[in-house]
Computed example of a mutant assay.
Amino acid sequence: MSEKVGRRGFLLGGAVVGAGALVSACTSNEPAAQPSSPASAPAAAASGGNDQPGQKVTIGFSAPAADHGWIAAIAKNAEATAKQYSDVTFTPVEPTNDINQQISAVESLIQQKVNVLVLLPNDGEQLNQVARRAMDAGIPVVNLDRIFPDKLSYRTWIGGDNYGMGVAAGHYIGAKLKEKGVSNPVIVEIQGIATLPLTQDRSKGFADALKSYGFSVTAKQDAQFTVETGTEVASNLLQAHSKIDALWNHDDDQGVGVLAAIKEAGRNEFFMVGGAGSANAMREIQSGSSVLEATVTYSPTMASSAIKLARLIAQNKGMSDLVENQVPQSITLASETITKENVEQYLPLGFES
């Protein structure tokens, strides 16, 4: 998400597990054994080294204020992962939604000469220059989620796949409607903030996936990523459509309000897909008695992984599952679909809205 909108959260325990999914097997870059034949594939780096104590590093961290469950979990995950390492000093600055205050906070980290900086900007464009100053000062920046427009302003970017969220939701809905033999379905979409590129990417992915089944969105309306706006928008759409076949809500935080409106209206003729992967959404799915059947992930485990990547970069190490000696320049996390069949696997990673 490359915008200054507070986003969703994650349980502390999920920080450790989720981060491990990406970089748990990272190792030091000791020379691998030479292949016995010129035709052999390159040998992987030796395993088991990177989680052992190494060069001491200080990781600076800055993120927006925790005005949503998702963004609250970003900070929790980052801190929890940093505490796993005896060689890491974690130096967070006060979270804020004020652009100028965040710029000042990052400047203070530059002045402290931290070894590496993990930065989730309120706005990637407006914090681009201060991130560039960090890079010019020799401090690698791990750009988390909301991307800086200038690639010279960050060493590595890690974030979610907004387009992929829409694709995952569209495939779930399209496949289920086809299986049920529904023709000309009424498909409703509740967005976040329509003017944001992240929202537009989600909607485009959704439309593209639906198109492959011969379907399209009947009606869509934007909310504001809050419970209150979720309730209001869902109520309006329910009143406007006496029959709905499927509904995709972009965000599980505002989904609390969407579900409240649905229950208040007594509607259950359709099924619903959520977005982000909150714990309350997973519990609804697990119950088997809700219209909410699935949610597609945009996981704040990315903060845990960002800390792990920052540590490796500061220690001049790479990732053991890759042949290359250095951490990649960008990593896009997949959007996964959570249903009743696999919800128990994901529930420990859910964040509270």
Rank of each mutant, 00 (worst) to 15 (best):
F148Q: 12
T156D: 13
R202L: 09
L196S: 10
R155C: 07
L210N: 06
N143K: 02
G170I: 01
A137D: 08
W157G: 03
I139H: 11
K178E: 13
D161M: 09
L198N: 10
L144K: 06
N184K: 15
Y163M: 04
V142G: 05
S203I: 07
R202Q: 13
A207Y: 06
S216M: 11
M165H: 03
G192C: 00
V217H: 11
V142T: 06
V217S: 06
G138K: 12
A207W: 00
P185W: 08
S212E: 15
Y154R: 14
Y213M: 14
I193M: 13
K211C: 04
D150N: 15
Y172N: 08
V188S: 00
S216Q: 15
S153Y: 13
L177H: 07
I158Y: 08
G164Y: 00
K204G: 03
F215Q: 05
A137T: 06
H171T: 07
V186C: 01
F148T: 09
L198M: 12
P149T: 02
R202T: 06
G170F: 01
S183D: 15
I190T: 12
S183C: 02
A168W: 00
D136T: 02
L210A: 15
S153A: 15
K176G: 02
D136W: 03
Y154P: 05
L210P: 09
H171E: 15
S183N: 15
Y172V: 07
D208N: 14
S203T: 06
D208H: 09
A168R: 00
M135L: 09
T199M: 04
S183F: 09
D201P: 04
V167R: 10
E179A: 15
V217W: 07
A169P: 03
A194I: 09
G159Y: 02
G214W: 13
P185L: 11
V188E: 00
D201Q: 13
R202H: 01
N162F: 05
V182D: 09
G160K: 02
S183G: 14
M135D: 07
D208Y: 11
E189V: 03
Y213I: 10
F148K: 01
D161W: 01
Y163W: 04
G192A: 10
Q191G: 04
T156P: 12
F148N: 14
G138L: 11
P149G: 07
T199V: 04
I173H: 11
G181D: 11
A168I: 01
G170P: 00
P197Q: 10
R155G: 07
L144V: 15
V217C: 06
G205Q: 00
M165P: 02
W157D: 10
N143V: 14
L196P: 00
F215G: 02
D208T: 05
T199S: 14
Y163K: 12
G214M: 14
Q191E: 10
G174C: 05
D150K: 09
D136K: 14
R155M: 08
V188M: 02
L177I: 00
P197E: 14
K151G: 08
A207K: 12
Y213C: 08
S153T: 10
R146W: 03
F215D: 12
N143F: 07
P197T: 06
A194N: 06
I187G: 09
I147C: 03
Q200D: 08
D161C: 09
N162C: 10
A169K: 06
S203C: 06
V142P: 03
G159E: 00
I193F: 05
K180N: 11
M165Q: 12
G214V: 14
G166S: 11
K178D: 09
L144F: 10
Y213P: 10
L152G: 13
A175C: 07
D150E: 05
